[in-house]
Computed example of a mutant assay.
Amino acid sequence: MSDRVLVVTGGSRGIGRATALAAAADGFDVVFSYVSDAGAAESLVAEIGAAGGRAVAVRADVGVEADVLALFAAADAVGRVAGLVNNAGVVDRAARVDEMTVARLERMFRINVIGSVVAAREAVRRMSTRHGGRGGAIVNLSSAAALLGAPGQYVDYAAAKGAIDSFTVGLAREVAAEGVRVNAVRPGIIDTDIHASGGIPDRAEAMRGAIPMGRAGTAAECAAAVLWLLSDAASYTTGSIVTVSGGR
């Protein structure tokens, strides 16, 4: 049984995948969720295994409580949960608020907010000294959209990530004396396929002019911030949100 298991939601692509790779290289046994792309999940498991690490892929939709419970049960079978990265999230097609349906809003908040809260609940139940745990760290994935509002594109997504910011600070203070640190990473424009899922596949390139550093960020750069927050180097850091946005 491992003494250092990291749960990563939405680990088969983008920032989640980069985080899983970096965490495995750092000595974590990684248990990650994916929703539909079994090939990508299997490829990641194989890549981590080939490098001498250990990864377990679990098909789980974080918007479904039973799936989150199954994900953590799989982690328990590997060993002691020492960390959680709440990475899974969705966007939708660009739309104004006056064009949005309730079905779209419910999906946005169920996955991006409720799923993260439920996953954090399960992590705290395992890591908090109040529950007999030995401590650990949670890192939530926010977005620069929480500050910018994403007008004309996805105000609902921005609002969901604003909720993640508030949740990060509140939970951090709630469990600070129980050995659990809670922080967030707030990415800006990152070159991943999440833009394609929102119907704007070339968004990262198109936004270059709005980024002071003149380029989009990479998933690996976000993963580096996540790994720092998980590490002992950040032992006195909780309730913080680290912005990785190229100055935007």
Score class of each variant (00 low, 15 high):
residue 22 A to L: 13
residue 151 P to S: 12
residue 208 R to E: 05
residue 69 L to P: 00
residue 191 D to N: 07
residue 86 N to I: 09
residue 119 A to T: 13
residue 98 D to G: 06
residue 134 R to Q: 13
residue 169 V to L: 00
residue 33 S to F: 03
residue 60 A to H: 02
residue 181 R to Q: 04
residue 216 A to I: 01
residue 147 L to E: 14
residue 22 A to S: 14
residue 100 M to Q: 15
residue 153 Q to K: 11
residue 57 A to H: 09
residue 224 A to K: 05
residue 106 E to G: 06
residue 130 R to D: 07
residue 194 I to G: 03
residue 220 A to V: 12
residue 138 I to T: 01
residue 240 S to P: 02
residue 33 S to K: 05
residue 162 G to E: 11
residue 73 A to W: 00
residue 43 S to K: 13
residue 187 P to L: 07
residue 42 E to K: 11
residue 229 L to Q: 02
residue 182 V to C: 09
residue 150 A to M: 14
residue 6 L to T: 08
residue 13 R to Y: 00
residue 231 S to R: 03
residue 46 A to F: 07
residue 25 A to K: 14
residue 98 D to A: 06
residue 224 A to F: 01
residue 47 E to I: 06
residue 238 T to A: 04
residue 146 A to D: 12
residue 72 F to T: 04
residue 40 A to D: 03
residue 216 A to R: 02
residue 84 L to D: 05
residue 77 A to M: 00
residue 13 R to S: 08
residue 6 L to G: 11
residue 144 A to S: 15
residue 222 C to T: 14
residue 174 E to W: 02
residue 151 P to E: 14
residue 240 S to Y: 10
residue 200 I to L: 14
residue 51 A to V: 11
residue 122 E to H: 06
residue 85 V to F: 08
residue 128 S to H: 01
residue 55 A to I: 15
residue 94 A to D: 10
residue 165 D to R: 11
residue 7 V to R: 10
residue 58 V to R: 06
residue 148 L to T: 13
residue 216 A to H: 04
residue 97 V to H: 10
residue 118 V to M: 09
residue 7 V to D: 07
residue 136 G to P: 08
residue 80 R to Y: 00
residue 151 P to I: 09
residue 184 A to G: 10
residue 78 V to E: 12
residue 136 G to K: 06
residue 199 G to V: 08
residue 74 A to P: 00
residue 114 I to M: 10
residue 217 G to H: 11
residue 222 C to Y: 09
residue 166 S to Q: 13
residue 167 F to G: 10
residue 149 G to C: 03
